[in-house]
Amino acid sequence: MNIPGTNTKSSKINQSADKARILRDRALTLAKRPVDTIPEFQTIEVLVFALGEERYAVGSETVREVCPLKQITRVPCVPPFVLGIMNLRGKIFSVIDLKRLFGLPQGKTSDQSKVIIIGFNDMDVGIQVDDVTGVKQIPVSEIQQDLPTLSGIQEKYLYGITPERLTIINVETLLTDESIVIQETVGP
C-alpha cells in the first residue's frame, strides 16, 4: 500500500506542524475502507451432498429440511425419476431421483442416504442423496457459470461449478420447470 508521507524523509523533519500533517495523512489513509476487496468475499451458503461419486450442492436458503431416508412409498404410473412419496410429520412429500433426472449412473442406497426437502414458492420436493457432507460458504467469484461441455438436461438445472468440481444446482429453475410436474390424466 502506498501511504503518502512515507516517501518524505521524515527523520529529517523537525517541525511539529509537518509531523502533525503527516500523521493526519497517514491516519486518513489507514482509515480508508479497502473498497476494492469487498466483492471477493461475497459468498453464498450451500448444502453439499453426494450423488454417486460426484458432489453437488444447493443454496441453503432453498433447503427446508434434511431427514434420513425412511420408507418411501412407490407411486405407480409416474416416470422413473419420481421415487415415490414419504411422510414427514404428517405432510406428504414427493421424492425425486436426481441421478435419473441428470442421467448419472445408478447406485445402491446406503444407510448414509438422506432426503433433502428443497422448496421454491409453493413447490416442495424431496431429493434423495447418497450422503450429506455439510454446509459450505463459497465465494461467488469462484463459481464458474458456463460449462461448454455440459449439455441438455444437466445444463438447464445448473447454477455453476467450483474449482473443486462441486456442482451447484439451480433450485429455482429445477422447481419451476413444468416438465418435472406430473400432470397426467387417463386419455379418453
Binding site: 407411486v75 404410473c77 409416474v78 419420481v82 412419496i85 411422510n87 404428517g90 400432470q183
Partner: peptide, 24 residues
Amino acid sequence: MGRQLSRVRNVSAGTVLGSGQVAL
C-alpha cells in the same frame, strides 16, 4: 401429494395409515 405430483394417472392422493406407513 404436493404440487410436483399434481395429477397422477389412477392415483388421487396419499394417506398415512395408522402404522405411519404412507399408502396411495
